[in-house]
Design a binder for these strands. Structure first.
Lengths: 246, 246
DNA sequence: TTCCAAGGTTGATCTGGATCAAGTTTTCAC
DNA sequence: GTGAAAACTTGATCCAGATCAACCTTGGAA
Protein backbone atom coordinates (compact mmCIF):
# COMPACT_ATOMS: atom_id res chain seq x y z
CA UNK A 1 0.00 0.00 0.00
CA UNK A 2 1.18 3.51 -0.73
CA UNK A 3 1.56 5.94 2.16
CA UNK A 4 -0.69 8.45 0.43
CA UNK A 5 -3.53 5.92 0.46
CA UNK A 6 -3.83 5.97 4.22
CA UNK A 7 -5.29 9.43 4.80
CA UNK A 8 -7.97 8.77 2.21
CA UNK A 9 -9.05 5.62 3.99
CA UNK A 10 -8.75 7.17 7.41
CA UNK A 11 -11.09 9.89 6.25
CA UNK A 12 -13.98 7.48 5.68
CA UNK A 13 -16.66 7.53 8.35
CA UNK A 14 -16.00 3.88 8.95
CA UNK A 15 -12.41 4.46 10.04
CA UNK A 16 -12.53 8.02 11.24
CA UNK A 17 -13.31 7.40 14.88
CA UNK A 18 -11.13 4.43 15.77
CA UNK A 19 -7.82 4.88 17.56
CA UNK A 20 -4.77 5.57 15.46
CA UNK A 21 -3.07 2.44 16.74
CA UNK A 22 -6.00 0.25 15.77
CA UNK A 23 -6.26 1.88 12.39
CA UNK A 24 -2.62 1.21 11.72
CA UNK A 25 -2.97 -2.37 12.87
CA UNK A 26 -5.81 -2.88 10.43
CA UNK A 27 -3.82 -1.32 7.62
CA UNK A 28 -0.72 -3.43 8.11
CA UNK A 29 -2.69 -6.58 7.38
CA UNK A 30 -4.32 -4.97 4.36
CA UNK A 31 -2.97 -4.49 0.88
CA UNK A 32 -3.71 -2.63 -2.29
CA UNK A 33 -4.33 -4.08 -5.74
CA UNK A 34 -4.59 -2.49 -9.14
CA UNK A 35 -7.16 -4.13 -11.36
CA UNK A 36 -7.51 -3.66 -15.11
CA UNK A 37 -10.81 -2.56 -16.57
CA UNK A 38 -13.60 -5.12 -16.75
CA UNK A 39 -12.12 -7.56 -14.28
CA UNK A 40 -14.55 -9.50 -12.14
CA UNK A 41 -12.77 -9.45 -8.81
CA UNK A 42 -15.65 -10.75 -6.74
CA UNK A 43 -17.92 -13.59 -7.71
CA UNK A 44 -21.21 -13.96 -5.90
CA UNK A 45 -21.24 -17.08 -3.77
CA UNK A 46 -17.55 -16.91 -2.91
CA UNK A 47 -16.61 -16.50 0.75
CA UNK A 48 -16.25 -12.86 1.73
CA UNK A 49 -12.67 -12.88 2.91
CA UNK A 50 -12.03 -9.19 2.42
CA UNK A 51 -13.67 -5.86 2.87
CA UNK A 52 -13.00 -3.81 -0.25
CA UNK A 53 -12.34 -0.11 -0.61
CA UNK A 54 -12.22 1.67 -3.96
CA UNK A 55 -9.54 4.32 -3.97
CA UNK A 56 -9.44 5.04 -7.69
CA UNK A 57 -11.55 3.99 -10.61
CA UNK A 58 -15.06 2.66 -10.22
CA UNK A 59 -16.73 -0.64 -9.56
CA UNK A 60 -20.01 -2.22 -10.55
CA UNK A 61 -21.87 -4.49 -8.16
CA UNK A 62 -24.13 -6.85 -10.05
CA UNK A 63 -26.17 -9.97 -9.52
CA UNK A 64 -26.67 -13.05 -11.65
CA UNK A 65 -29.43 -15.58 -11.63
CA UNK A 66 -29.81 -18.25 -14.23
CA UNK A 67 -28.66 -16.59 -17.42
CA UNK A 68 -29.76 -13.12 -16.36
CA UNK A 69 -27.70 -10.35 -14.89
CA UNK A 70 -28.48 -6.95 -13.41
CA UNK A 71 -26.59 -4.02 -11.99
CA UNK A 72 -27.23 -3.49 -8.31
CA UNK A 73 -24.94 -0.53 -7.65
CA UNK A 74 -21.96 1.43 -8.86
CA UNK A 75 -19.28 2.34 -6.39
CA UNK A 76 -17.18 5.45 -6.81
CA UNK A 77 -14.11 6.37 -4.76
CA UNK A 78 -13.61 6.60 -1.89
CA UNK A 79 -16.07 3.99 -0.63
CA UNK A 80 -16.17 0.58 0.97
CA UNK A 81 -18.26 -2.20 -0.45
CA UNK A 82 -19.58 -5.63 0.62
CA UNK A 83 -19.22 -4.72 4.28
CA UNK A 84 -22.15 -6.89 5.36
CA UNK A 85 -20.80 -10.08 3.82
CA UNK A 86 -17.37 -9.60 5.40
CA UNK A 87 -18.91 -9.04 8.77
CA UNK A 88 -21.16 -12.05 8.68
CA UNK A 89 -18.42 -14.23 7.23
CA UNK A 90 -20.95 -15.19 4.61
CA UNK A 91 -20.81 -15.64 0.83
CA UNK A 92 -21.02 -12.52 -1.31
CA UNK A 93 -24.56 -11.93 -2.54
CA UNK A 94 -23.30 -9.84 -5.44
CA UNK A 95 -20.44 -9.96 -7.90
CA UNK A 96 -18.17 -7.01 -8.53
CA UNK A 97 -16.24 -5.92 -11.60
CA UNK A 98 -14.17 -2.86 -12.39
CA UNK A 99 -15.76 -0.36 -14.75
CA UNK A 100 -12.37 1.14 -15.42
CA UNK A 101 -8.87 0.61 -14.19
CA UNK A 102 -9.17 0.64 -10.41
CA UNK A 103 -7.10 0.72 -7.26
CA UNK A 104 -8.66 -1.36 -4.48
CA UNK A 105 -7.74 -1.90 -0.85
CA UNK A 106 -8.42 -5.30 0.65
CA UNK A 107 -8.87 -5.63 4.41
CA UNK A 108 -9.11 -9.18 5.75
CA UNK A 109 -12.61 -9.80 7.11
CA UNK A 110 -11.31 -11.68 10.12
CA UNK A 111 -9.23 -8.68 11.19
CA UNK A 112 -12.26 -6.50 10.76
CA UNK A 113 -14.39 -8.72 12.96
CA UNK A 114 -11.69 -8.90 15.59
CA UNK A 115 -11.33 -5.15 15.56
CA UNK A 116 -14.86 -4.14 16.36
CA UNK A 117 -14.69 -6.27 19.48
CA UNK A 118 -11.63 -4.30 20.56
CA UNK A 119 -12.48 -0.76 19.54
CA UNK A 120 -15.84 0.55 20.65
CA UNK A 121 -15.72 3.62 18.49
CA UNK A 122 -15.06 1.44 15.49
CA UNK A 123 -17.98 -0.83 16.29
CA UNK A 124 -20.23 2.22 16.52
CA UNK A 125 -18.96 3.31 13.11
CA UNK A 126 -19.69 -0.12 11.69
CA UNK A 127 -23.19 0.03 13.13
CA UNK A 128 -23.79 3.42 11.57
CA UNK A 129 -22.38 2.33 8.26
CA UNK A 130 -24.47 -0.83 8.09
CA UNK A 131 -27.61 1.03 9.07
CA UNK A 132 -26.92 3.52 6.30
CA UNK A 133 -26.34 0.72 3.77
CA UNK A 134 -29.56 -0.95 4.82
CA UNK A 135 -31.55 2.21 4.37
CA UNK A 136 -29.93 2.74 1.02
CA UNK A 137 -31.14 -0.63 -0.29
CA UNK A 138 -34.60 -0.06 1.13
CA UNK A 139 -34.80 3.21 -0.80
CA UNK A 140 -33.74 1.31 -3.86
CA UNK A 141 -36.42 -1.32 -3.40
CA UNK A 142 -39.01 1.40 -2.91
CA UNK A 143 -38.10 3.03 -6.21
CA UNK A 144 -38.32 -0.29 -8.00
CA UNK A 145 -41.71 -1.19 -6.58
CA UNK A 146 -43.42 2.19 -6.50
CA UNK A 147 -42.21 3.98 -9.60
CA UNK A 148 -42.49 3.17 -13.26
CA UNK A 149 -39.48 3.44 -15.49
CA UNK A 150 -40.10 6.99 -16.63
CA UNK A 151 -40.38 8.13 -13.01
CA UNK A 152 -37.24 6.26 -12.05
CA UNK A 153 -35.31 7.90 -14.87
CA UNK A 154 -36.58 11.37 -14.11
CA UNK A 155 -35.90 11.11 -10.39
CA UNK A 156 -32.45 9.66 -11.00
CA UNK A 157 -31.51 12.52 -13.31
CA UNK A 158 -32.79 15.12 -10.89
CA UNK A 159 -31.01 13.52 -7.97
CA UNK A 160 -27.73 13.55 -9.87
CA UNK A 161 -28.18 17.19 -10.69
CA UNK A 162 -28.75 17.97 -7.02
CA UNK A 163 -25.76 15.92 -5.90
CA UNK A 164 -23.65 17.88 -8.36
CA UNK A 165 -24.74 21.04 -6.59
CA UNK A 166 -28.05 21.79 -8.27
CA UNK A 167 -26.47 22.22 -11.68
CA UNK A 168 -28.57 22.59 -14.79
CA UNK A 169 -26.28 20.46 -16.91
CA UNK A 170 -23.94 17.58 -16.23
CA UNK A 171 -22.51 14.44 -17.79
CA UNK A 172 -23.85 11.02 -16.88
CA UNK A 173 -21.35 9.36 -14.55
CA UNK A 174 -21.88 5.94 -16.15
CA UNK A 175 -22.69 4.36 -19.48
CA UNK A 176 -26.32 4.32 -20.45
CA UNK A 177 -26.49 0.56 -20.73
CA UNK A 178 -25.30 0.28 -17.14
CA UNK A 179 -27.69 2.95 -15.98
CA UNK A 180 -30.53 1.14 -17.71
CA UNK A 181 -29.74 -2.08 -15.88
CA UNK A 182 -29.45 -0.25 -12.58
CA UNK A 183 -32.83 1.36 -13.12
CA UNK A 184 -34.36 -1.99 -14.04
CA UNK A 185 -34.99 -1.43 -17.71
CA UNK A 186 -33.49 -2.26 -21.11
CA UNK A 187 -31.10 0.09 -22.91
CA UNK A 188 -33.67 0.51 -25.68
CA UNK A 189 -36.29 1.56 -23.22
CA UNK A 190 -33.97 4.01 -21.48
CA UNK A 191 -33.11 5.54 -24.82
CA UNK A 192 -36.77 5.98 -25.68
CA UNK A 193 -37.63 7.25 -22.22
CA UNK A 194 -34.91 9.90 -22.37
CA UNK A 195 -36.24 11.06 -25.68
CA UNK A 196 -39.78 11.08 -24.36
CA UNK A 197 -38.67 13.29 -21.47
CA UNK A 198 -37.85 16.06 -23.90
CA UNK A 199 -40.90 18.20 -23.54
CA UNK A 200 -40.96 17.47 -19.82
CA UNK A 201 -38.02 19.70 -19.02
CA UNK A 202 -35.14 17.50 -20.14
CA UNK A 203 -32.72 17.64 -23.01
CA UNK A 204 -30.07 15.02 -23.75
CA UNK A 205 -26.98 15.51 -25.82
CA UNK A 206 -25.13 12.24 -25.86
CA UNK A 207 -24.13 11.60 -22.26
CA UNK A 208 -24.83 15.22 -21.40
CA UNK A 209 -27.94 15.98 -19.35
CA UNK A 210 -29.54 19.38 -19.64
CA UNK A 211 -32.42 20.29 -17.39
CA UNK A 212 -34.41 22.82 -19.35
CA UNK A 213 -37.36 23.06 -16.98
CA UNK A 214 -36.67 21.88 -13.46
CA UNK A 215 -40.21 22.53 -12.22
CA UNK A 216 -41.70 20.40 -14.96
CA UNK A 217 -39.26 17.57 -14.47
CA UNK A 218 -39.74 17.71 -10.73
CA UNK A 219 -43.50 17.51 -11.09
CA UNK A 220 -43.02 14.34 -13.09
CA UNK A 221 -40.41 12.74 -10.85
CA UNK A 222 -42.02 13.68 -7.55
CA UNK A 223 -38.76 13.33 -5.64
CA UNK A 224 -39.21 12.15 -2.08
CA UNK A 225 -36.84 12.49 0.86
CA UNK A 226 -37.68 8.93 1.89
CA UNK A 227 -36.64 7.50 -1.46
CA UNK A 228 -34.18 9.87 -3.02
CA UNK A 229 -32.58 11.13 0.15
CA UNK A 230 -30.54 12.68 1.40
CA UNK A 231 -30.68 10.78 4.66
CA UNK A 232 -30.71 13.10 7.64
CA UNK A 233 -27.79 11.57 9.53
CA UNK A 234 -24.42 12.30 7.99
CA UNK A 235 -23.99 9.31 5.75
CA UNK A 236 -20.93 10.58 3.85
CA UNK A 237 -20.12 8.01 1.24
CA UNK A 238 -18.64 4.88 2.70
CA UNK A 239 -21.65 2.85 1.80
CA UNK A 240 -22.36 -0.47 0.25
CA UNK A 241 -25.17 0.45 -2.03
CA UNK A 242 -24.90 4.18 -2.50
CA UNK A 243 -27.99 4.63 -4.58
CA UNK A 244 -27.87 8.34 -4.04
CA UNK A 245 -24.50 8.63 -5.68
CA UNK A 246 -24.96 6.29 -8.57
CA UNK B 1 -44.65 -5.08 30.38
CA UNK B 2 -45.56 -8.55 31.58
CA UNK B 3 -42.88 -10.64 33.28
CA UNK B 4 -43.43 -13.46 30.79
CA UNK B 5 -42.49 -11.14 27.94
CA UNK B 6 -38.91 -10.82 29.07
CA UNK B 7 -37.57 -14.31 28.30
CA UNK B 8 -38.97 -14.10 24.80
CA UNK B 9 -37.16 -10.86 24.15
CA UNK B 10 -34.01 -12.02 25.84
CA UNK B 11 -34.01 -15.02 23.53
CA UNK B 12 -33.59 -12.87 20.40
CA UNK B 13 -30.10 -12.85 18.95
CA UNK B 14 -30.05 -9.10 19.39
CA UNK B 15 -30.37 -9.31 23.18
CA UNK B 16 -28.98 -12.74 23.88
CA UNK B 17 -25.36 -11.80 24.46
CA UNK B 18 -25.57 -8.60 26.47
CA UNK B 19 -25.15 -8.64 30.25
CA UNK B 20 -28.21 -9.32 32.34
CA UNK B 21 -27.88 -5.97 34.07
CA UNK B 22 -27.81 -4.10 30.78
CA UNK B 23 -30.74 -6.09 29.44
CA UNK B 24 -32.78 -5.24 32.49
CA UNK B 25 -31.82 -1.59 32.22
CA UNK B 26 -33.02 -1.53 28.64
CA UNK B 27 -36.27 -3.23 29.59
CA UNK B 28 -37.14 -0.87 32.42
CA UNK B 29 -37.29 2.05 30.01
CA UNK B 30 -39.35 0.03 27.55
CA UNK B 31 -43.02 -0.71 27.53
CA UNK B 32 -45.55 -2.92 25.83
CA UNK B 33 -48.59 -1.89 23.84
CA UNK B 34 -51.51 -3.84 22.49
CA UNK B 35 -52.68 -2.62 19.13
CA UNK B 36 -55.97 -3.50 17.44
CA UNK B 37 -55.97 -4.96 13.97
CA UNK B 38 -55.27 -2.67 11.06
CA UNK B 39 -53.72 0.12 13.09
CA UNK B 40 -50.95 2.10 11.45
CA UNK B 41 -48.56 2.52 14.35
CA UNK B 42 -45.65 3.80 12.32
CA UNK B 43 -45.87 6.38 9.58
CA UNK B 44 -43.00 6.69 7.18
CA UNK B 45 -41.23 9.99 7.63
CA UNK B 46 -41.83 10.19 11.37
CA UNK B 47 -38.79 10.22 13.65
CA UNK B 48 -37.78 6.74 14.74
CA UNK B 49 -38.06 7.14 18.48
CA UNK B 50 -38.49 3.46 19.27
CA UNK B 51 -37.22 0.09 18.27
CA UNK B 52 -40.22 -2.21 17.93
CA UNK B 53 -40.53 -5.88 18.79
CA UNK B 54 -43.55 -7.97 17.83
CA UNK B 55 -44.39 -10.42 20.59
CA UNK B 56 -47.80 -11.53 19.37
CA UNK B 57 -49.75 -10.93 16.19
CA UNK B 58 -48.13 -9.80 12.98
CA UNK B 59 -47.14 -6.57 11.34
CA UNK B 60 -46.90 -5.34 7.78
CA UNK B 61 -44.16 -2.97 6.71
CA UNK B 62 -45.20 -0.99 3.68
CA UNK B 63 -44.17 2.01 1.68
CA UNK B 64 -46.14 4.81 0.10
CA UNK B 65 -45.27 7.14 -2.69
CA UNK B 66 -47.70 9.49 -4.30
CA UNK B 67 -50.96 7.59 -4.25
CA UNK B 68 -49.31 4.17 -4.51
CA UNK B 69 -48.55 1.73 -1.77
CA UNK B 70 -46.67 -1.55 -1.59
CA UNK B 71 -45.86 -4.18 0.98
CA UNK B 72 -42.18 -4.37 1.83
CA UNK B 73 -42.23 -7.09 4.50
CA UNK B 74 -44.34 -8.93 7.00
CA UNK B 75 -43.03 -9.38 10.49
CA UNK B 76 -44.02 -12.35 12.60
CA UNK B 77 -43.23 -12.84 16.29
CA UNK B 78 -40.76 -12.74 17.84
CA UNK B 79 -38.85 -10.19 15.77
CA UNK B 80 -37.58 -6.68 15.92
CA UNK B 81 -38.26 -4.21 13.18
CA UNK B 82 -37.02 -0.79 12.01
CA UNK B 83 -33.72 -1.27 13.78
CA UNK B 84 -31.76 0.78 11.25
CA UNK B 85 -33.94 3.86 11.59
CA UNK B 86 -33.75 3.80 15.41
CA UNK B 87 -30.00 3.49 15.29
CA UNK B 88 -29.45 6.31 12.89
CA UNK B 89 -32.00 8.51 14.65
CA UNK B 90 -33.49 9.02 11.23
CA UNK B 91 -37.05 9.08 9.90
CA UNK B 92 -38.73 5.76 9.23
CA UNK B 93 -38.47 4.80 5.55
CA UNK B 94 -41.49 2.50 5.85
CA UNK B 95 -44.83 2.57 7.56
CA UNK B 96 -46.08 -0.26 9.73
CA UNK B 97 -49.56 -1.52 10.49
CA UNK B 98 -50.87 -4.48 12.43
CA UNK B 99 -52.26 -7.31 10.34
CA UNK B 100 -54.07 -8.64 13.39
CA UNK B 101 -54.31 -7.74 17.03
CA UNK B 102 -50.70 -7.41 18.13
CA UNK B 103 -48.59 -7.00 21.22
CA UNK B 104 -45.59 -4.77 20.62
CA UNK B 105 -42.63 -3.79 22.76
CA UNK B 106 -41.21 -0.31 22.34
CA UNK B 107 -37.62 0.38 23.29
CA UNK B 108 -36.52 4.02 23.20
CA UNK B 109 -33.99 4.52 20.42
CA UNK B 110 -31.84 6.78 22.56
CA UNK B 111 -31.42 4.05 25.18
CA UNK B 112 -30.52 1.64 22.44
CA UNK B 113 -27.85 3.93 21.06
CA UNK B 114 -26.45 4.56 24.51
CA UNK B 115 -26.39 0.85 25.22
CA UNK B 116 -24.23 -0.30 22.36
CA UNK B 117 -21.58 2.12 23.48
CA UNK B 118 -21.59 0.51 26.91
CA UNK B 119 -21.95 -3.17 26.10
CA UNK B 120 -19.55 -4.59 23.53
CA UNK B 121 -21.39 -7.86 23.15
CA UNK B 122 -24.55 -5.94 22.43
CA UNK B 123 -22.85 -3.83 19.80
CA UNK B 124 -21.59 -6.99 18.12
CA UNK B 125 -25.13 -8.33 18.14
CA UNK B 126 -26.41 -5.12 16.58
CA UNK B 127 -23.75 -5.36 13.90
CA UNK B 128 -24.70 -8.92 13.09
CA UNK B 129 -28.37 -8.08 13.07
CA UNK B 130 -27.93 -5.11 10.76
CA UNK B 131 -25.73 -7.08 8.41
CA UNK B 132 -28.38 -9.80 8.26
CA UNK B 133 -31.10 -7.24 7.57
CA UNK B 134 -29.03 -5.69 4.83
CA UNK B 135 -28.48 -9.01 3.14
CA UNK B 136 -32.14 -9.76 3.44
CA UNK B 137 -33.13 -6.63 1.50
CA UNK B 138 -30.47 -7.30 -1.11
CA UNK B 139 -31.94 -10.76 -1.69
CA UNK B 140 -35.29 -9.11 -2.03
CA UNK B 141 -34.02 -6.65 -4.60
CA UNK B 142 -32.40 -9.49 -6.53
CA UNK B 143 -35.68 -11.38 -6.75
CA UNK B 144 -37.47 -8.27 -7.95
CA UNK B 145 -34.93 -7.47 -10.64
CA UNK B 146 -33.98 -10.93 -11.85
CA UNK B 147 -37.18 -12.97 -11.71
CA UNK B 148 -40.50 -12.55 -13.42
CA UNK B 149 -43.69 -12.83 -11.42
CA UNK B 150 -44.23 -16.53 -12.05
CA UNK B 151 -40.73 -17.30 -10.85
CA UNK B 152 -41.16 -15.13 -7.78
CA UNK B 153 -44.38 -16.90 -6.88
CA UNK B 154 -42.97 -20.37 -7.41
CA UNK B 155 -39.81 -19.70 -5.42
CA UNK B 156 -41.78 -18.07 -2.64
CA UNK B 157 -44.06 -21.07 -2.32
CA UNK B 158 -41.17 -23.51 -2.33
CA UNK B 159 -39.26 -21.47 0.23
CA UNK B 160 -42.26 -21.47 2.55
CA UNK B 161 -42.58 -25.20 2.21
CA UNK B 162 -38.93 -25.64 3.15
CA UNK B 163 -39.19 -23.27 6.11
CA UNK B 164 -42.12 -25.32 7.35
CA UNK B 165 -39.84 -28.35 7.34
CA UNK B 166 -40.10 -29.50 3.75
CA UNK B 167 -43.82 -30.16 3.97
CA UNK B 168 -45.88 -30.98 0.90
CA UNK B 169 -48.84 -28.96 2.03
CA UNK B 170 -49.30 -25.85 4.13
CA UNK B 171 -51.49 -22.80 4.53
CA UNK B 172 -50.38 -19.41 3.27
CA UNK B 173 -49.30 -17.32 6.26
CA UNK B 174 -50.80 -14.15 4.81
CA UNK B 175 -53.67 -12.99 2.65
CA UNK B 176 -53.17 -13.30 -1.05
CA UNK B 177 -53.63 -9.60 -1.72
CA UNK B 178 -50.80 -8.90 0.70
CA UNK B 179 -48.63 -11.59 -0.80
CA UNK B 180 -49.27 -10.16 -4.25
CA UNK B 181 -48.11 -6.73 -3.17
CA UNK B 182 -45.05 -8.17 -1.47
CA UNK B 183 -44.16 -10.07 -4.62
CA UNK B 184 -44.64 -6.95 -6.71
CA UNK B 185 -47.76 -7.91 -8.62
CA UNK B 186 -51.51 -7.32 -8.60
CA UNK B 187 -53.93 -9.68 -6.81
CA UNK B 188 -55.46 -10.56 -10.17
CA UNK B 189 -52.13 -11.53 -11.56
CA UNK B 190 -51.26 -13.62 -8.51
CA UNK B 191 -54.56 -15.43 -8.81
CA UNK B 192 -53.95 -16.24 -12.45
CA UNK B 193 -50.35 -17.18 -11.83
CA UNK B 194 -51.32 -19.63 -9.10
CA UNK B 195 -53.79 -21.22 -11.44
CA UNK B 196 -51.23 -21.37 -14.21
CA UNK B 197 -48.83 -23.17 -11.88
CA UNK B 198 -51.20 -26.10 -11.72
CA UNK B 199 -49.57 -28.39 -14.19
CA UNK B 200 -46.17 -27.29 -12.93
CA UNK B 201 -46.40 -29.23 -9.70
CA UNK B 202 -48.67 -26.96 -7.68
CA UNK B 203 -52.23 -27.22 -6.51
CA UNK B 204 -54.08 -24.51 -4.61
CA UNK B 205 -57.15 -24.99 -2.46
CA UNK B 206 -58.10 -21.59 -1.11
CA UNK B 207 -55.19 -20.55 1.09
CA UNK B 208 -53.89 -24.10 1.15
CA UNK B 209 -50.77 -24.87 -0.91
CA UNK B 210 -50.19 -28.39 -2.13
CA UNK B 211 -46.97 -29.25 -3.85
CA UNK B 212 -47.83 -32.11 -6.15
CA UNK B 213 -44.52 -32.31 -7.98
CA UNK B 214 -41.62 -30.72 -6.16
CA UNK B 215 -39.09 -31.49 -8.89
CA UNK B 216 -41.19 -29.77 -11.52
CA UNK B 217 -41.86 -26.74 -9.38
CA UNK B 218 -38.21 -26.53 -8.42
CA UNK B 219 -37.14 -26.63 -12.05
CA UNK B 220 -39.37 -23.66 -12.68
CA UNK B 221 -38.41 -21.66 -9.58
CA UNK B 222 -34.67 -22.38 -9.75
CA UNK B 223 -34.17 -21.61 -6.07
CA UNK B 224 -30.81 -20.08 -5.29
CA UNK B 225 -28.98 -19.92 -1.96
CA UNK B 226 -27.96 -16.37 -2.75
CA UNK B 227 -31.54 -15.23 -3.16
CA UNK B 228 -33.75 -17.57 -1.22
CA UNK B 229 -31.35 -18.38 1.57
CA UNK B 230 -30.86 -19.65 4.07
CA UNK B 231 -27.94 -17.46 4.98
CA UNK B 232 -25.03 -19.45 6.28
CA UNK B 233 -24.44 -17.56 9.51
CA UNK B 234 -27.07 -18.25 12.16
CA UNK B 235 -29.51 -15.49 11.43
CA UNK B 236 -32.36 -16.72 13.65
CA UNK B 237 -35.26 -14.37 13.14
CA UNK B 238 -34.70 -11.02 14.72
CA UNK B 239 -34.53 -9.27 11.41
CA UNK B 240 -35.88 -6.16 9.87
CA UNK B 241 -36.91 -7.51 6.52
CA UNK B 242 -37.16 -11.24 6.99
CA UNK B 243 -37.95 -12.10 3.42
CA UNK B 244 -37.21 -15.73 4.09
CA UNK B 245 -39.96 -15.96 6.65
CA UNK B 246 -42.62 -13.98 4.92
C1' DT C 1 -6.14 7.87 -40.34
C1' DT C 2 -8.69 3.95 -40.76
C1' DC C 3 -11.19 0.29 -39.10
C1' DC C 4 -13.82 -2.27 -36.09
C1' DA C 5 -16.12 -3.34 -32.08
C1' DA C 6 -19.00 -1.67 -28.66
C1' DG C 7 -22.38 1.57 -27.31
C1' DG C 8 -26.40 3.83 -28.58
C1' DT C 9 -30.69 4.81 -31.31
C1' DT C 10 -34.79 3.82 -33.89
C1' DG C 11 -38.52 1.14 -35.67
C1' DA C 12 -41.67 -2.88 -35.68
C1' DT C 13 -43.69 -6.20 -33.09
C1' DC C 14 -44.85 -8.95 -29.14
C1' DT C 15 -46.20 -10.02 -24.47
C1' DG C 16 -46.29 -10.02 -19.37
C1' DG C 17 -48.78 -8.01 -16.41
C1' DA C 18 -51.95 -4.04 -15.34
C1' DT C 19 -56.46 -2.35 -15.52
C1' DC C 20 -61.37 -2.47 -15.66
C1' DA C 21 -65.49 -4.90 -14.84
C1' DA C 22 -68.35 -8.52 -13.22
C1' DG C 23 -69.07 -12.26 -10.62
C1' DT C 24 -68.27 -15.55 -6.54
C1' DT C 25 -66.81 -16.85 -2.12
C1' DT C 26 -65.47 -15.91 2.52
C1' DT C 27 -65.58 -13.45 6.70
C1' DC C 28 -67.41 -11.26 10.25
C1' DA C 29 -70.44 -7.98 12.74
C1' DC C 30 -74.87 -7.69 14.37
C1' DG D 1 -78.38 -16.99 11.03
C1' DT D 2 -78.24 -12.97 7.98
C1' DG D 3 -76.50 -9.17 5.54
C1' DA D 4 -72.77 -6.52 3.97
C1' DA D 5 -68.19 -5.77 3.21
C1' DA D 6 -64.00 -7.62 1.97
C1' DA D 7 -61.28 -11.04 -0.35
C1' DC D 8 -60.76 -13.66 -4.28
C1' DT D 9 -61.55 -15.20 -9.05
C1' DT D 10 -62.44 -14.79 -13.92
C1' DG D 11 -62.82 -12.58 -18.28
C1' DA D 12 -61.92 -8.79 -21.60
C1' DT D 13 -58.99 -5.33 -22.84
C1' DC D 14 -55.07 -2.36 -22.74
C1' DC D 15 -50.44 -0.75 -22.36
C1' DA D 16 -45.61 -0.32 -20.59
C1' DG D 17 -41.84 -2.24 -21.53
C1' DA D 18 -39.31 -6.28 -23.66
C1' DT D 19 -37.63 -8.28 -27.71
C1' DC D 20 -35.85 -8.49 -32.30
C1' DA D 21 -33.64 -6.32 -36.03
C1' DA D 22 -31.40 -2.80 -38.35
C1' DC D 23 -28.80 1.10 -38.35
C1' DC D 24 -25.94 5.02 -36.67
C1' DT D 25 -22.15 6.90 -33.64
C1' DT D 26 -18.24 6.82 -30.94
C1' DG D 27 -13.90 5.65 -29.27
C1' DG D 28 -9.82 3.12 -29.31
C1' DA D 29 -6.25 0.19 -31.33
C1' DA D 30 -3.39 -0.76 -35.10
Amino acid sequence: MRPEDLPEIRHLHLFRDMTQANFEALMTSSYALNFPQGLEMIRQGDPADFLHIVLEGSVELFARWGGRECTMAMVQPVSTFILAASIRDAPYLMSARTLERARIILIPSSDLRAMFRRDTEFSVSVINELAACYRSVVRNAKTLKLRNSRERVASYLLRQSILAGGVVSYTLPVEKRLLASYLGMTPENLSRTLKALEGDGLKMDGARVIITDRAKLTALAQPDKLIDGPDVAGNENGAGLPSTRL
